[in-house]
């Protein structure tokens, strides 16, 4: 019996911007249900790598397999669909939609990914992140920690197989950091999702096995 196909498989990934190498990675896999940590100082290419895995960016060379799909060979339109269906994203700047209520922010994610509206799921997630009674509030009325939690709720609302998070905890104090990580791990477990967190936050290292360390001249090493 062959081992199960990895959820993420990077092969010979190489990315250049304006002739400068920003990523040059060895082969790297993350099995389904496992969680990974991308470590490295800022500017080491963590965000770029997350975007390549999410199919938002095409690498200069190499292959990215996500859930058996080779993202790098897909048409852009198909990549949009795969991303909507299989990948949840938590951005460093959160990028919540300020014109919409908290509930509508989650519903928008369902709708744009072509999932049927599921208000039960929306309510359940808002309750879980402690914002159940503020479904009709707007993101600007939230604290930083609350916004961070909402961004995570949006990333998992469609029960994706893979959740990519970019520095989700860097702006949080220790208490919030712990709660947020608990939330992410709990949601990942509930939905059988794989977490991949890019961070330079040392507090996370104790909770997740470090998998890939990006070093300053953008060369990765498996830790």
């Amino acid at each position: 019996m062959s081992p199960p196909a990895p959820l993420i498989h990077l092969r010979g990934l190489h990315h250049r911007v304006a002739g400068r190498t920003v990523l040059d990675l060895p082969d790297w896999r993350v099995a389904a249900g496992e969680h990974g940590l991308l470590l490295g100082p800022s500017g080491s290419g963590k965000t770029t790598l997350l975007q390549i895995i999410a199919g938002l960016l095409s690498p200069t060379a190499g292959q990215v397999m996500v859930a058996g799909q080779e993202m790098t060979s897909l048409d852009e339109g198909v990549r949009d669909v795969v991303r909507g269906a299989c990948i949840g994203l938590v951005f460093q700047q959160l990028h919540l939609v300020n014109a919409l209520t908290l509930a509508d922010n989650l519903r928008l994610a369902q709708r744009l990914a072509d999932y049927p509206p599921d208000d039960g799921r929306v309510a359940q997630l808002l309750n879980r992140i402690g914002l159940g009674d503020r479904a009709h509030a707007y993101p600007r009325q939230l604290s930083q920690g609350e916004r961070q939690r909402l961004a995570i709720a949006r990333a998992v609302v469609n029960r994706p197989a893979l959740v990519l998070a970019d520095e989700p905890t860097s702006a949080l104090d220790d208490g919030n950091c712990t709660r947020l990580l608990d939330l992410m791990l709990e949601q990942a477990a509930e939905n059988d999702a794989t977490l991949l967190i890019a961070t330079h936050d040392a507090r996370l290292k104790t909770r997740l096995p470090a998998r890939l360390v990006l070093t300053a001249p953008a060369l990765g090493a498996v830790a």
């Binding site: 999410a54 938002l56 852009e76 339109g77 949009d80 669909v81 991303r83 909507g84 269906a85 994203l89 951005f91 990028h95 939609v97 928008l108 994610a109 744009l112 990914a113 072509d114 949006r154």
Partner: peptide, 9 residues
């Protein structure tokens, strides 16, 4: 963000 959530061009 809408693109990243799966919306097409």
């Amino acid at each position: 963000v809408m693109r990243s959530l799966g919306a097409s061009r």
